[in-house]
Simulated scan of single mutants.
Amino acid sequence: MNGRLQRIWVLLRLAVALAVGWRFGWAWGALTLGLHAAILAGGFLQLRWVNRPAPTWGQLLRAWAREVVASELAFSWRQPWREWAEPDHLPAGAGQGVLLVHGFSCNRGRWNGWMKRLRQQGIAFVAPSLEPAFGSIEAYADEIEAGVQRLKAHTGRMPVLCAHSMGGLALRAWWRRFGAGHEAPHVITLGSPHQGTRMAALGLGINTQQMRLGNAWLAALPGLPDVDCFWTPCDQIVNPAERAILAGARAHRLDGVGHMGLVHSEEAWQCCQTALASSLVSVNTPRRI
């Protein structure tokens, strides 16, 4: 559903830009396409007053420039047009797996860069597109469980679970419902509103209500037993910034990176690689008697 909505949005943006260009000149048409970048700039500016300590102007400028590219790549190309460019990968003989969980208003195309790299490494992965797009986060637990079961059946072990944004809350909802049937997974969350976010007050849908500050559903979610939380003081979506940190987690701060840009961070990718290496060592190391 999100892919279809985003295709409509891309075509609408192009149509408006062409109409403005035809009527007022092509320079104005190009500026119309650039309104997205201007709106993003407002989201970053407010972080100077929301986050403490405040990010520097240089960090905000760098994050904004990267976010313009990252968000256009996601919402104008990968998610609307390339959702299935990288299908789920279950190669013969794979001994490790990764489950990739996207965030609000996204789909599995959000992870195309990671999926391409995992495929090159011969690592199994599953990336569901969570539906309904604007329904309860609780509803995503079944799709996550199906992905976990596919990877466990194929590799013989629990996959590493990676989630961006709302996907981290979906993993916690999954863990509450299905955790008793699994060994503790290694979880990596990127910009997940574990303690809610101010920006959810501007959103529509049940899932945005569940991400608002101080709501009962979020307060009742369990933690995760083994989790790395990546967060950034330049997160224009999850703020105040420290709300992306889950109690008891290993917190990783990234500067000069925006919300969508977290998925492109090499630090997060390397964390996934370390988790895969650790799981392989733990399985292959014999017990001492």
Rank of each mutant, 00 (worst) to 15 (best):
L40G: 06
N284T: 15
T208D: 04
V281F: 10
L171C: 10
D228T: 12
L276R: 01
P286N: 11
R172P: 03
S136H: 03
N107S: 15
G147Y: 02
H36L: 13
M158F: 06
P240H: 05
S192W: 02
N51D: 14
Q121S: 15
S129M: 09
L280D: 09
F75T: 04
Q79F: 06
A200F: 02
Q195K: 09
A244R: 00
C106T: 04
G97I: 03
L73T: 06
C271I: 08
R66Q: 13
Q195M: 13
F125P: 00
L246V: 11
V187M: 11
R119Q: 07
N207M: 12
G203R: 00
Q120Y: 13
D88W: 04
A63Q: 04
G147T: 10
W77K: 06
A251M: 14
Q209V: 13
E86L: 06
V126G: 03
G248M: 11
L100D: 02
H164C: 12
G109R: 00
F44G: 02
S278M: 12
N112A: 14
P222A: 09
W217C: 07
M158Y: 06
A249V: 09
C162A: 14
T285I: 10
D235A: 10
S136Q: 06
W22Q: 13
L5G: 10
R253C: 13
N239K: 06
M115I: 04
M1S: 12
R110H: 11
G168K: 02
Q96W: 04
Q121L: 14
T232Y: 01
L90M: 04
A268L: 15
V227I: 14
L221T: 05
T155V: 10
F75V: 11
R82K: 13
W269C: 09
A15L: 12
F230T: 03
K116R: 15
A173L: 07
L5V: 08
